[in-house]
Nucleic acid binder design. Structure first.
Lengths: 121, 121
DNA sequence: ATACTATATGACTGTTTGGCGATGTAATCA
DNA sequence: TGATTACATCGCCAAACAGTCATATAGTAT
């Protein structure tokens, strides 16, 4: 019998292995979503486009910080920017982020439920 | 007619707004996935459990770095650790990460296709 | 016990990054 | 014109982090 760690070669028959370029691209997108304030902004934008001022006010962020995070998400292609006179209107450009958050939330709540159940045995 | 940025209140009728705690939890999980080497390790583990040595060898990582990243993912609950004699066998504990990566990849390839098509017009 | 192997950890470095105040810039208003 | 508003950017600081080497720890073999 072979050692315990013999690898099943491809048990899941899962995803094709990502190339280096894709790997960093994926990592970069996840990096955008790895910051609570950015998630807050995205969540707020989910209800519709908003100006920087609205975001700053409703989320109690400093204006400089909000602009910074929005610029970051703009570079990553997660949001879109439209100039409206004096203001800058930001919109979600990648709705998939909500699917991603949804998946994670679902998993996390499952996890929490399991933990609670385990404690209640 | 109201200003252009009047918010549709809930256009997507989407996700319930996450609380602060969930927000940081989600962000932390995404942070784990925001590093190419960690994604490489996860991708490698997708084929089945593996020891640190195997990971180090196949992915050409330094042993200290591999242990560090594995420890980080262990803390986050993304992988599981089992001691086998001398070695430490790591396993995926959160298969959902592959769904997440799959979604992102799909979106990124779509994006690339759009870009290519746009250039080819 | 000694030597060797496998893994984890501590210390250190360089880089990145969130947050902040201050300043720059462009559009609107008076 | 000047004043004000809205946003972006710069410079800075402190914290976090990836990567590395050296070392500690624990299991295995001799």
């Amino acid at each position: 019998m072979p050692a315990k760690t013999s690898r099943p070669a491809s048990r899941h028959a899962g995803l094709k292995p990502l190339g280096e370029a894709q790997l960093t691209a994926v990592a970069e997108l996840f990096a955008v979503l790895s910051e609570p304030n950015r998630l807050r902004i995205l969540q707020f934008l989910q209800a519709g486009p908003a100006s920087v001022g609205e975001i700053v006010e409703r989320l109690s962020l400093k204006q400089a910080n909000a602009s910074k995070q929005l610029g970051l998400m703009l570079s990553a292609g997660v949001v879109r920017r439209e100039q409206d006179g004096n203001r800058a209107i930001y919109t979600i450009a990648m709705p998939i982020v909500f699917d991603l958050c949804g998946l994670v939330c679902h998993r996390l709540s499952e996890h929490a439920t399991e933990r609670a159940a385990a404690l209640r045995v």
